[in-house]
Structure formats: C-alpha cells, structure tokens
C-alpha cells in the first residue's frame, strides 16, 4: 500500500514538473511574440528586448529550463524510490 501511494505521489509530482515546464514554454513562444512591440521599447546590449528574446533570450531560457526540469525530476526520483540505480 505504501508503495502504491509513493507511486501516485511520484506521478503527481512528475505531472506538476511537466505542467510547469510546458506553461513556461507556452508563455515564451506564444505570449512573448504577442507583446514584442511593448518589449521593443526596452534595450539589452543595445538590442531591443522583444527582438533579443526571439534571437537569443528564449533559446537560453529553454536550455536552463530543460536542465532545471531534469534536476528536479532526479531529486524527485531519488526521494520517491524511482531512481534508476535501485
């Protein structure tokens, strides 16, 4: 019974990580291009922020997000006994 509960726990947290991740991706690719006009009034390295996000920012954030999600998932797997090496 305890094992079953642990598995449900693991499922729910995995789902939570995935949902957070997908929400962040959706904001980056669907919302940021919508407000690009407003963002372009700010500047970063001499580049308007709206343009910068599309050219570099989004990709950099994706890389950080993927490693963050992988790290979170590993911590979760270890804690709930779903790590690969056991």
């Amino acid at each position: 019974m305890a094992e079953d509960q642990q598995r449900i726990h693991h499922r729910l947290w995995t789902l939570a990580i995935a949902a957070t991740f997908l929400a962040a991706v959706a904001i980056l690719i669907f919302v940021v291009p919508l407000v690009v006009g407003e963002l372009n009034t700010y500047f970063l390295f001499g580049i308007p922020v709206g343009f910068y996000m599309a050219a570099q920012g989004t990709v950099i954030i994706f890389a950080i997000l993927v490693f963050w999600a992988a790290g979170q998932q590993e911590v979760l797997d270890r804690k709930l006994g779903a790590a690969e090496d056991n």
């Binding site: 997908l22 989004t58 999600a69």
Partner: peptide, 9 residues
Amino acid sequence: AAGFAVCAI
C-alpha cells in the same frame, strides 16, 4: 528550439 524543449519533458 521549442520543439526540443517540449520533447525533453
């Protein structure tokens, strides 16, 4: 790039 991210998760 976003396709990569989505398939990772």
